[in-house]
């Protein structure tokens, strides 16, 4: 009954729910800065969504399945991160953008005194931040079956390797948090649509040829 055979599409659908929640937080608090913060996240969503979708499609094409388990098993020979570097990079960028973290933290930017979360205090802020961290953790955990071969690895059992890899991806994303200035969407949007989408399309072409060949 549960749609596990299409895990990737389900994962993508559940990410987009964050658009609704951040916009509602920004719009619901009836104050100008959070409203601008909420709309900034919509712009960010439109910028990162297409490259992100193409990256996921590339992985599904390589594994010829939409199911996380299948994808992880399809990588036993060669991990996807090795021969799909562009897709992996775009995926990491979109994980940051999805959780509006680090350089993509413009919706909750310091220049708007906190943007969407400006009027949240106490439990509201706790719930919002917990949701945001959870989104970051889940998205970096999803990178493991998609690109890093799921539980594959010497010595340690499968689940241990999955945890270790998730931890590594998460550490990388958390490390980036203050390392880069915030990227504004009015300039990143053109770059995303003009550079990232063609790059992922070329990557998909390469994968298509390899899979067919």
């Amino acid at each position: 009954m549960l749609p596990w055979s299409i895990g990737v599409v389900w994962f993508n659908a559940m990410e987009v729910v964050a658009w609704v929640s951040v916009w509602m937080v920004g719009w619901g608090t009836n104050s100008a800065f959070p409203l601008v913060g909420g709309y900034r996240f919509l712009a960010q969503g439109l910028a990162y969504e297409l490259p992100h979708m193409f990256a996921l499609i590339t992985v599904a094409l390589g594994a010829e399945s939409l199911d996380f388990g299948e994808i992880a098993r399809a990588q036993d020979g060669l991990w996807f991160v090795v021969w799909m570097p562009v897709a992996f990079l775009v995926y990491l960028l979109s994980v940051l953008a999805m959780a509006f973290w680090g350089p993509f933290g413009h919706p909750v930017g310091h220049d708007l005194a906190g943007g969407a979360v400006l009027e949240l205090a106490g439990p509201d802020r706790l719930v919002f931040e917990a949701g945001r961290y959870a989104l970051l953790v889940v998205a970096s955990a999803a990178a493991v079956p998609l690109f890093l071969g799921g539980g594959a690895g010497p010595l340690l059992p499968g689940w241990a390797w999955a945890l270790v890899k998730t931890y590594l991806v998460l550490a990388l994303l958390v490390w980036v948090r203050h390392r880069l200035p915030v990227i504004r969407m009015d300039r990143f949007m053109t770059a995303a649509w003009v550079v990232l989408i063609p790059a992922t399309l070329v990557q998909m072409l390469v994968v298509g040829i390899v899979v067919l060949g």
Binding site: W27, T29, N30, S31, A32, F33
Partner: peptide, 27 residues
């Protein structure tokens, strides 16, 4: 007053054309 409360007075009610009257979230 400052950014923290910036739009609440003037901007708040004209929050982008959507009236406070129709009850939006935590108001």
């Amino acid at each position: 007053h400052g950014g923290g409360h910036g739009g609440h007075e003037q901007g708040g009610h004209a929050a982008h054309g959507d009236m406070g009257g129709d009850g939006d979230g935590g108001h």
